[in-house]
């Protein structure tokens, strides 16, 4: 899973095809992409991303949201918010997409072996965490308690809803879902993700947390976990910046002394905490 090769020419995308498309919400879609005819043998690690290219329009970094056990079907979840992602979201099965990758650092799941694993997602942050969840469920015996916490704006904005329901009923898995607001017919929890962290059952001295979502949410979540006794070096965040080259050359994604595309997107919290919340970075 951790053998990550590189393309000989890092800027040349391979042509993949949309095999299947599923709308998660009104503006968010999950694609399964099939590889080029010449084949594709690279694996990816949970937490990594690909650069997806819509021909003649532009390229965007998108986290891989598929199962790392099935790397030949590359899965991405895209929210249509800009010129590139709007076109990506509208692509029908059979359409071509340029893809290069996988790039970036991964969730250090090997370090969590024998410990409680907390996967904390805000909004579309569930997409980069889904490969880690798939991996943890497929290797359930490697981890102690598995806690999945997911917060989003409203029930209509929940992605991977069927899977969340499945994980909720799974033995040995605590899956806590919350939304910021809801209509009265929503039977679930309403409130911030911080309240769900308080309800999570884990041993803070022997746990690892992977957190992905808006930066403010990640910062507050990390502080909440530390408040419960978890060491800062057991918390990992996935950051997002303006990635262009994806190979640590162009500098567009610079974050203080770091290039997010190469050293990140996954960082250990204690290494980047001083930079979070600094407006000038």
């Amino acid at each position: 899973m951790n053998t990550v090769a590189r393309y000989p020419e890092p800027y040349v995308p391979a042509v993949w095809r949309v095999e299947e498309r599923r709308w998660e919400t009104a503006n968010t879609v999950t694609f399964a992409l099939s590889p080029p005819p010449q084949g594709f043998t690279e694996s990816f690690a949970p937490g990594q991303f690909n650069m997806l290219y819509t021909f003649g329009v532009g390229e965007v970094p998108i986290s891989i949201s598929g199962d790392p056990a099935s790397p030949a079907t590359m899965v991405h979840t895209i929210r249509a918010v800009g010129s590139v992602t709007r076109i990506l979201a509208g692509l029908e099965p059979g359409s071509a997409i340029g893809l290069r990758g996988p790039y970036g650092s991964a969730w250090p799941l090997e370090d969590a072996r024998g410990r409680d694993l907390i996967l904390l997602a805000g909004g579309l942050g569930l997409a980069p965490l889904r490969p880690a969840i798939c991996h943890a469920l497929a290797n359930r015996g490697a981890y102690r308690r598995l806690v999945i916490i997911c917060g989003t704006r409203s029930p209509e904005n929940l992605v991977f809803r069927d899977e969340l329901e499945g994980w909720t009923g799974m033995r040995g898995v605590q899956c806590l879902v919350t939304v910021d607001h809801a209509s009265p017919d929503w039977p679930g929890h309403v409130g911030t993700i911080l309240q769900q962290i308080r309800r999570a059952e884990f041993d803070p001295d022997n746990a690892m947390a992977c957190v992905c979502g808006p930066e403010i949410m990640m910062r507050h979540s990390a502080e909440a976990l530390i408040g419960l006794g978890m060491p800062a070096n057991a918390i990992h965040l996935s950051l997002e910046r303006n990635m262009k080259c994806a190979v640590s050359r162009c500098g567009h994604c610079q974050f203080g002394p770091h290039f997010l595309c190469g050293e990140g997107p996954v960082f250990r919290y204690d290494r980047i905490a001083p930079l979070l919340g600094v407006a000038e970075v």
Partner: peptide
């Protein structure tokens, strides 16, 4: 109050500035 502030920030809203 802290939670209400976080909810008021609407952190999970789509960001219009994305590509």
């Amino acid at each position: 109050l802290t939670h209400a502030r976080m909810q008021a920030l609407d952190l999970y809203a789509p960001e219009a500035a994305r590509p």
